[in-house]
């Protein structure tokens, strides 16, 4: 039976449901605490690694900046990353020490930074045998973003792995490659990586189609 609100693109295939912006109130659905709603028993949020998780514990922090240079204060981000050994852990379970998936949001106040508490991922092998440098896949949703933007965060101190990464290498402009490299900082003895996402204009972050 034909799907009632779907559209065929051929005899054999349906069209994907069309995307719409997540809007200014995305937090009600995906970030309840940010909206001011009480949280449910379990929420999907930004603490991807507990203290007992294996690997180097890091914080990842950043802003989202629009084409005017102003912070985007209502963005929601989703992260997907490998564990310290370079394996994705699809089974999401808050009882586990580490989850490959997390969510975070920029804040309405202050510096409007998003942050994730996680571990540094390992290098990930690709099917063709090439090795991708450690990275975190990020999706950005917000009011004014009609279909989510997809990018990758790489690490400044992985110079050799970054130079050999086939995905970074596929970005034609070496200048633009640099937009995907998070800067290492140490704050109170803890390792933190800063990754500011520029949606438009000078220093515009590379966004991927896949």
């Amino acid at each position: 039976m034909r799907q009632p609100n779907s559209q065929p693109c051929s005899e054999l295939m349906l069209r994907e449901t069309a995307s719409q912006t997540a809007g200014p109130y995305v937090h009600i659905g995906l970030a309840l605490d940010v909206a001011g709603l009480p949280e449910r028993d379990e929420e999907i949020w930004s603490r991807m690694a507990k203290p007992e998780a294996e690997g180097e514990h890091i914080e990842v922090i950043g802003t989202v900046i629009d084409g005017n240079g102003d912070p985007v204060r209502d963005a929601l981000l989703e992260a997907w990353q490998a564990d310290a050994s370079g394996w994705y852990q699809p089974a999401f379970d808050l009882q586990k020490a580490f989850n490959s998936f997390g969510r975070t949001a920029t804040t309405a106040e202050g510096n409007s930074e998003w942050s994730l508490t996680t571990i540094k991922p390992g290098s990930v092998a690709r099917g063709d045998g090439k090795v991708m440098a450690p990275h975190i896949n990020l999706a950005i949703f917000a009011r004014g973003i009609n279909i989510h933007l997809q990018t990758r965060l790489y690490f400044e101190d992985e110079v050799e792995a970054n130079a050999a990464c086939p995905v970074l290498g596929a970005i034609e402009s070496p200048t633009r490659r640099q937009t995907l490299i998070a800067k290492r900082e140490e704050v109170d003895g803890k390792v933190r990586y800063r990754f500011d996402i520029r949606l438009q204009g000078e220093g515009e972050t590379v966004f991927f189609d896949f």
Binding site: G144, V167, A170, D209
Partner: peptide, 11 residues
């Protein structure tokens, strides 16, 4: 002001 002006990079 929230739309990239550069093309997406296809993987």
């Amino acid at each position: 002001a929230r739309s990239p002006s550069q093309a997406l990079v296809s993987l």
